[in-house]
Design a protein around this nucleic acid. Structure first.
Length: 679
DNA sequence: ATTGGGGTCT
């Protein structure tokens, strides 16, 4: 026997002295992560306990044991000792919570926190709160986070920079950027971490622009950037394609020597790739001495984005020669490239490789395989892959749904969705992106009502995009009443330009022009500015219902508006509107004064109107242009022939029909055979 | 003893 135990046996010193020695030793061992020594000491404490039956000293030492074990990563012992402690203090609690965080047991953190609050003899401290906020953040529990935020404000830790930083991260990760902003603005001392958290948080919440604003402010304030700043701001530059800002960050990285960090280098490669500068991406990539799988994957993705899938595949080989194995992300990236280019063979090769590498059970890989086969129009193979997945996660189901949708199999998509629900898989928002169009295609009222019911119960209907799709589905089913009910149920303040456009369009398509126009003015009154899409919907509605004056007024409104420029669609609507009303010359005058050359659609609208009203003069002009703009469209010949026949000009009609048959064979420009009198 | 951080797909 040696060390402290022997000291205890001899009992030359007081218990307090020995306890202090134990504590000091344990602290040192914890700092140096010396697990073996901690274990030895643990043994000594047990011996000491037995010999002296003086638990007093051991009670002072055991909390230190817990801390040391947890620092050394020996979770089992730490847990056991912790459970045996009669009165664990806040420090021990903090260490146990840290263990939970490291193991991803966030609910355990919350349980311990509540326990700690109920103890009565001690309270959470500045080390406790960051751990608890981390747990709230990972569990996406803002409600709880807010409560604990309130608690920090009541305590003296609410003004601590580190506590506030973890609070920022919690709000940002829960999607509450406004609340994060309030905390940030109120912070007395902002550290570089605070700025980084804001930049990164805004980017993650879809506000890349604001992320850059914060970055610029940070630089203006003279805050020294670090590696995490670079890693947070570069993706924002990438998504906004701000090559110049990216280059400035790169320069700062070089100046501050942050580039030893491979994470920073990889972020730079990705930024250059996304900004389309492959030369710069390659030069950063070449400069990385020890490239990891992320460096390679970013570069591979770069070649894919620049359209060189062959080179991407070559690089994938090169990386393996260098001894780096592609991971599921690399594969997912390559497979998505094969999908969009319909490279079925390369996709199959990758599939085989993935199976041999045993990467085929990763969800991302499964999902991209399903997507790749579907995009290559091999739905059966796609389903085969899908059937072999564990089917517990929503992603493969979503991929399969979008696969069915892509291949025009709407009924299958709806059937699969039902099965998904029966198997208890919870969809997420993007699942509906591919599912809802299928319902619109089927246009089955009973199915739509079932869906409506589900969306209400599951709460997804409160998502504006999904509610908007449902309006469209009801409209496609011909049920404007339900469509309008769904529209009315959307709270006024979240109705956006898209939901208004869809309801206006729905009334327009079903010939209720007046309602469409009145909805349009309601929208403007509610403070939403019309855009090109809404104008298309409302003008379409006018032309469908023959509301000439209303249509012309709206069109004038559009011309006056600086923000909305009439495009081809709008001219098509107006020409159609005037044409149907028999005001053909007005329509033609408008076309001549158009700021750009009328497309086939505009000419088509004019020709259609000429047929209705028997106007050969303008009809021939329109036909001449149409034959030039879309020589393959035989419909235009049919229309012109119809125009001639209606006026009893049988011979001309017959000629046009011959012409139509010839075009397919001779590819001779048809318009040369038609005499154009005026143009 | 604490806080923030890279590439893909859904």
């Amino acid at each position: 026997m040696n060390g402290p135990s022997r000291a205890l046996l001899k009992d030359k010193r007081s218990l307090a002295e020995i306890t202090a020695q134990f504590q000091a030793l344990l602290k040192r061992y914890a700092a140096t992560r010396s697990l073996a020594k901690v274990k030895l000491l643990h043994g000594h404490t047990i011996t000491a306990d037995m010999l002296h039956s003086s638990l007093g000293s051991a009670e002072d030492v055991r909390p230190y044991m817990v801390v040391s074990y947890s620092r050394c990563g020996e979770v089992r012992y730490a847990r056991k000792l912790f459970d045996e402690l009669p009165q664990p203090g806040v420090v021990v609690y903090n260490h146990m919570m840290r263990i939970c965080v490291d193991r991803g047991e966030y609910f355990g953190v919350l349980k311990m926190f509540v326990e700690l609050l109920q103890l009565g003899y001690c309270a959470p401290d500045k080390y406790t709160f960051p751990l608890v906020f981390k747990a709230c953040s990972e569990l996406s529990s803002v409600e709880l986070g807010r409560v604990i935020h309130g608690q920090t404000l009541m305590s003296k830790f609410g003004s601590g920079t580190i506590v506030q930083n973890s609070l920022l991260a919690m709000y940002m990760n829960c999607g509450q950027k406004e609340e994060a902003r309030k905390v940030f603005d109120a912070m007395k001392e902002k550290s570089v971490v605070s700025w980084n958290t804001m930049i990164n948080g805004y980017f993650k919440n879809g506000c890349a622009q604001t992320a850059l604003v914060f970055f610029n402010q940070m630089v203006d304030f003279g805050v020294e950037i670090d590696g995490a700043t670079a890693v947070s701001v570069l993706p924002a530059c990438a998504s906004l394609k701000k090559l110049n800002v990216g280059r400035r960050v790169h320069a700062a990285v070089e100046k501050k020597v942050l580039g030893n960090n491979i994470v920073v280098r990889n972020a730079l490669v990705d930024m250059y790739v996304k900004c389309g500068s492959m030369e710069e991406a390659k030069s950063v990539f070449d400069g990385i001495v020890e490239k990891d799988v992320v460096s390679w994957t970013s570069m591979i993705n770069g070649y894919i984005l620049s359209g060189d899938v062959r080179k991407a595949l070559v690089l994938c080989k090169a990386m393996q020669i260098e001894g780096i194995r592609p991971n599921s992300v690399t594969i997912a990236s390559l497979l998505s490239a094969c999908a969009s280019l319909k490279y079925l063979n390369d996709g199959r090769c990758l599939h085989g490789w993935v199976m041999r590498q045993k990467l085929d059970s990763e969800v991302v890989v499964e999902t991209s395989l399903i997507d790749m086969y579907a995009k290559c129009n091999c739905v059966e193979v796609s389903f085969g892959v899908f059937a072999r997945t564990s089917r517990k996660r929503a992603a493969p189901w979503s991929a399969m749904l979008s696969g069915y949708n892509y291949n025009g199999l709407a009924a299958e998509a709806v059937g699969l969705f039902k099965q998904m629900l029966m198997e208890g898989v919870k969809p997420y928002e993007v699942t509906f992106n591919s599912l809802l169009p299928a319902y619109a295609t089927l246009a089955d009222l009973q199915l739509a009502m079932n869906l409506h019911c589900y969306l209400m119960k599951s709460g997804f209907l409160s998502t504006i995009e999904i509610a908007t799709s449902l309006i469209d589905i009801y409209s496609k089913c011909g049920n404007l009443e339900f469509a309008h009910k769904v529209f009315n149920a959307i709270p006024e303040e979240i109705k956006d330009i898209f939901s208004w456009s869809v309801i206006i369009g729905s009334y327009g398509v079903h010939g209720h022009g007046k309602t469409a126009v009145s909805l349009f003015s309601q929208m403007v009154q509610s403070g939403i500015k019309a855009n090109e899409i809404t104008f298309t919907s409302v003008l379409h509605a006018c032309s469908h219902s023959g509301l000439v004056d209303e249509g012309l007024n709206l069109f004038k409104l559009m011309l006056k508006d600086q923000k909305t420029n009439p495009g081809d669609d709008h001219y098509t609507c107006i020409v159609d509107l005037l044409g149907r009303a028999g005001r053909l010359n007005e329509a033609y005058d408008l076309m001549i004064r158009m700021p750009f050359r009328p497309s086939h659609a505009v000419w088509g609208a004019l020709l259609g109107a000429c047929v209705i009203h028997g106007n050969v003069e303008l009809g021939e002009i329109a036909a001449k242009w149409l034959f030039e703009l879309e020589p393959e469209n035989t419909g235009n010949f049919v229309l012109l022939a119809k125009l001639y026949s209606a006026l009893g000009r049988w011979e001309d009609a017959e000629n046009v029909r011959h012409l139509m048959n010839d075009v397919g064979i001779r590819k001779e420009p048809a318009h040369s055979l038609i005499e154009v009198r005026k143009m």
